[in-house]
């Protein structure tokens, strides 16, 4: 922990930090999702037997009906761009080297939207895209490098 002595001569402020770190587990449904992504490169979905809504990434429960989701199904990482943005600045306001194409993608066979990056010349809503996967995958959302145009 930094000692809190970085104050100015006029004693009007003190500087310091909050030394927090987080280590998140991916959870019960998340574990299934990342096993699937890592091992076979599929996007695992789960479907609510009551309202038929299909969640991807898969979830343990339906937020609409509150039922446990038990119908898991592997989906191909293929879909259509639902919406996108090109991000040109870093979080601190400086320009990015390469613009980031952030996108919501409607995966074929799913109802929920999937958030990831694109790597296409000119993004368009409705554009058909597929995931480009890393060769060595470790069970992370970045096992998908980006989605590219089909």
């Amino acid at each position: 922990m930094k000692e809190l002595k970085n104050h100015n001569d006029k004693l009007t402020f003190f500087s310091g930090n909050i030394p927090l770190e987080s280590l998140y587990t991916v959870g019960i449904a998340g574990d299934k999702f990342f096993q699937s992504l890592k091992n076979i490169g599929a996007l695992l979905s789960s479907k609510c037997s009551r309202c038929n809504y299909v969640y991807v990434p898969c979830r343990l429960f339906c937020e609409r009906c509150f039922d446990e989701l038990k119908e898991y199904k592997e989906l191909e990482p293929v879909g259509a761009v639902y919406s996108f943005s090109e991000v040109n600045i870093e979080r601190d306001g400086s320009p990015v080297k390469t613009p980031v194409q952030a996108a919501l993608i409607k995966i074929n066979g799913a109802d929920s939207l999937f958030y990831h990056r694109l790597n296409v010349k000119k993004p368009k809503i409705g554009m058909k895209v597929k995931a480009v996967l890393e060769k060595y995958r470790k069970g992370s959302i970045n096992d998908i490098r980006y989605f590219e145009e089909i």
Binding site: T25, G27, I28, A29, L60, F61, F66
Partner: peptide
């Protein structure tokens, strides 16, 4: 240390109450 996410824990308890 739970394997479950915070959401999954909360849902277990809420679902059981319902």
């Amino acid at each position: 240390r739970a394997k479950e996410t915070p959401k999954e824990l909360a849902w277990y308890a809420a679902k059981m109450a319902l």
